[in-house]
Amino acid sequence: MEFVIVLAVLSAVVVVVSAPLRRADEQPVNAADELHDLEAAREAKYREIRDADLDHRTGKLSDEDFEAIDRSLRTEAIEILHALDSAEGTQAG
């Protein structure tokens, strides 16, 4: 009985682990990783814009400082979006 259980588990492990090797498709990964990196940077930048806004509204940033920081953050966000556009274009092409 114990031998059967071990054999069954071993078989299941072999089937599950080897499944991808029986697959035909192979895709390059580098472009997708770059895209994900940029998406992570975009998420972080959006969060930073929101944080700056909340800091301003809760009185931690003066109007002048907020305007300067917000402008700078949005410029950085646009740069990331441009990079994302070109990365997406590269991947699609």
Partner: peptide, 25 residues
């Protein structure tokens, strides 16, 4: 998702769609 994202403040009114919003800077 990216094209529909709103990037204005947490407590502020919703901003227009993402790219136009950023482009106005």
């Amino acid at each position: 998702r990216r094209r529909a994202a709103r990037v204005a403040g947490t407590t502020g009114p919703p901003a227009p769609a993402e790219v136009p919003e950023l482009a106005k800077v």
